[in-house]
Structure formats: C-alpha cells, structure tokens
C-alpha cells in the first residue's frame, strides 16, 4: 500500500507547525499517531507547555470561545491528525451532548495540572523570596 492510503486524517512531518499562537482557528485536532508539543515562544526562547500523544486532542479552546490560538503546536516526529471543524463539532455536540463528556474530563484534568503547576511555582517563588530576604 502506498504511504498514507490506509491512514485517516492528515500527515505532518517532524517540526511542522500545525498552528501558531494568536492565529485564528476553526478546527480542533485529534492525534491518531505520533506526538505534538504545545509551545509558547518569546524571542528565541521556546517553552514547552505540554507534550500530547495518541488519542489526545488540542485546539478545542478556540472552538468554544472563538478567540485566537493560545499557543503554538508543532509536530514531534511524524504525526497523523484528524481535523474536526467548528461547525461539524458543534453540530455533533448539539445532537449528542454526552459526546462532550470525555472532552470535559480531559479539560478538567488539564485545569488540575495547571493548578498544580501554579501552586508549585508560587511555593518556589515564596521559598526564593524567603531565602533571599536580605537582598530584597
């Protein structure tokens, strides 16, 4: 079989940008195979916010709030992604609201992780300030 004939979705190569921060997007993506990294870039510094893998989805925030993309997403190695556009997605959710259960579950897990990260950062900053009180 020729490459890709048996695989659903679209192919991306290592380093391909799937979408950029602040771009306008009307699609969400589900990873069929491979990995992607969610990044924020400031100057030459690239901060990895998350690494997502098979079965994970991303880009869903813009479908709900219609705001520009909050981060960039790049392919880590060869990736196959299934793209779902906003209109189709909302149609599906309106026909079967329980379809959103898994998304809500995943989004809740992400919020928990973010909370944990913020808490860890706050503790680290507090410790840092306490350790360097005399300089402050």
């Amino acid at each position: 079989m020729k490459d890709g004939e048996g695989s659903l979705g679209r192919d991306y190569k290592d380093g391909d940008i799937i979408f950029e921060e602040n771009s306008i997007g009307k699609e969400m993506y589900i990873i069929l195979t491979g990995k992607v990294k969610v990044i924020k870039e400031k100057g030459d510094v690239e901060t990895i916010l998350a690494t997502l893998e098979e079965g994970d989805f991303f880009g869903e925030m813009s479908l709900f709030d219609n705001n520009p993309r909050s981060a960039s997403v790049k392919a880590l190695g060869n990736v196959k992604l299934l793209e779902i556009n906003q209109k189709n997605f909302l149609k599906k959710i309106s026909r079967d609201p329980s379809l959103a259960f898994r998304m809500l579950e995943k989004m809740s897990q992400r919020i928990r992780k973010t909370d944990e990260k913020i808490l860890n950062c706050t503790v680290e900053i507090k410790d840092f300030i306490e350790d360097h009180q005399e300089f402050v």
Binding site: L8, L32, L99, R102
Partner: peptide, 8 residues
C-alpha cells in the same frame, strides 16, 4: 476519535 476510539 472524540470518544478516544481512534481507528488506525
């Protein structure tokens, strides 16, 4: 795919 059942 949304349900987490990815066909490959």
């Amino acid at each position: 795919a949304i349900e987490g059942i990815c066909l490959k």
